[in-house]
C-alpha cells in the first residue's frame, strides 16, 4: 500500500453572504462535504467549471482557510493544527497568474530567498547557493538572480513561482490552473517541467484545471467537482474512457480535440 499523503475528510466550507447590516446572513456552501485521499507520488486532477468550489477546496487543502466542518491531514498531520512554518514546509501552492504572484518590487533572488529566511534556516551562507541550484532545477538562467519580475516572460515567471514553492522541499504542491494564463508553447514547457520535478523530487500534486486535456495529460487520478461536491473520482484513463456520472459525460462531451477528424459538431456537407 502506498502512503496516504493527503486525506481530506468530509470537508465543508461555508461563506456567510451579507445581505445588509440588519438582515440575517445567508450561507453559501462553496464546498459541501468532500472526502478525498491522495497517495504519495500521485497527481490528483480537480476538474469542474467556474464556481464549482475547486479553488476553495484547494485553499482548504493548503490550510489557508479553516474548514467549516471536516479536516485535512497532510502526511498524517492536521493541516490546521500545524504551526505556520511547519505547514509551509509541507505543502506549497503554485498560482495561475505569474504576473500577480510575484512581488514586482523585489528581485528574483530575494523572492526565492524569502522562504529560507522565513524558515529561519540556520545555514544562511548557503542560501544563495541553494537558490541558484533551485533556479537551475526549474530552468532559469543564473543571470536572472538580480532581475525583476517585469524583466521576465510569463513562462519564466511561472518557473520562478515553481522555484519558490519548491525551495523548502515540500511534499505536496497544489497547482491552481498553473498554465491557463500561458500560451500553448509555454504551457507545454511548464507541464513538462512539472512532470520532471515530480519524478525527481517525488512530489505529490493536486492539479486544478478547467482544461481537461491538461488534466488528462498530467493526472493519475481525476476528481470531477460539481456545485461543491465531487461527483466522480476515478483513475484518469478509466474516467476518460468510461465516465459514469451524467455531468462527467457532459463535460467530456464538450472537449474540443485538436483534430479536425474528431469534430464534436455536425457540420454541413
Amino acid at each position: 500500500m502506498a502512503d496516504t499523503m493527503i486525506y481530506g475528510y468530509d470537508l465543508v466550507k461555508e461563506y456567510p453572504i451579507s445581505r445588509g447590516m440588519f438582515k440575517r446572513k445567508e450561507l453559501l456552501r462553496a464546498v459541501g462535504g468532500v472526502t478525498l485521499q491522495v497517495n504519495k507520488g500521485e497527481v490528483l486532477g480537480l476538474v469542474g467549471e467556474s464556481g464549482c468550489g475547486k479553488t476553495t477546496l484547494a485553499r482548504l487543502i493548503l490550510g489557508m482557510i479553516p474548514p467549516t466542518a471536516g479536516s485535512v491531514e497532510i502526511a498524517g498531520q492536521n493541516i490546521n493544527k500545524l504551526a505556520r512554518l511547519e505547514r509551509a514546509k509541507t505543502i506549497q501552492p503554485i498560482f495561475q497568474d505569474p504576473y500577480s504572484s510575484l512581488n514586482p518590487s523585489k528581485t528574483i533572488g530575494s523572492i526565492l530567498t524569502l522562504p529560507l529566511r522565513i524558515q529561519r534556516d540556520r545555514e544562511s551562507h548557503s542560501w544563495e547557493k541553494r537558490v541558484r541550484q533551485t533556479m537551475d532545477l526549474v530552468g532559469l538562467a543564473q543571470r536572472m538572480y538580480n532581475q525583476y519580475p517585469n524583466q521576465l516572460s510569463g513562462g519564466q515567471r511561472q518557473r520562478v513561482a515553481i522555484a519558490r514553492a519548491l525551495i523548502t522541499r515540500p511534499a505536496v504542491v497544489v497547482c491552481d490552473e498553473p498554465t491557463s494564463a500561458l500560451d500553448v508553447s509555454v504551457q507545454s514547457q511548464i507541464l513538462n517541467l512539472l512532470k520532471e520535478l515530480r519524478e525527481e523530487l517525488n512530489l505529490t500534486y493536486v492539479l486544478i484545471s478547467h482544461n481537461l486535456a491538461v488534466v488528462q495529460h498530467m493526472a493519475t487520478r481525476v476528481a470531477v467537482m460539481y456545485f461543491g461536491h465531487v461527483v466522480e473520482e476515478e483513475k484518469t484513463n478509466i474516467l476518460f474512457e468510461e465516465p459514469k456520472h451524467e455531468y462527467t459525460k457532459k463535460l467530456l462531451g464538450s472537449i474540443l480535440v485538436p483534430d479536425p477528424n474528431k469534430r464534436i459538431f455536425n457540420k454541413k456537407e
Binding site: 500553448v184 504551457q187 507545454s188 498530467m218
Partner: peptide, 14 residues
C-alpha cells in the same frame, strides 16, 4: 505542444 492523448512523443513529454 498541445496535450493530445495518444499523440505524445517518447517518454510522454510534450
Amino acid at each position: 505542444c498541445i496535450p493530445v492523448p495518444g499523440k505524445l512523443g517518447q517518454d510522454n513529454t510534450l
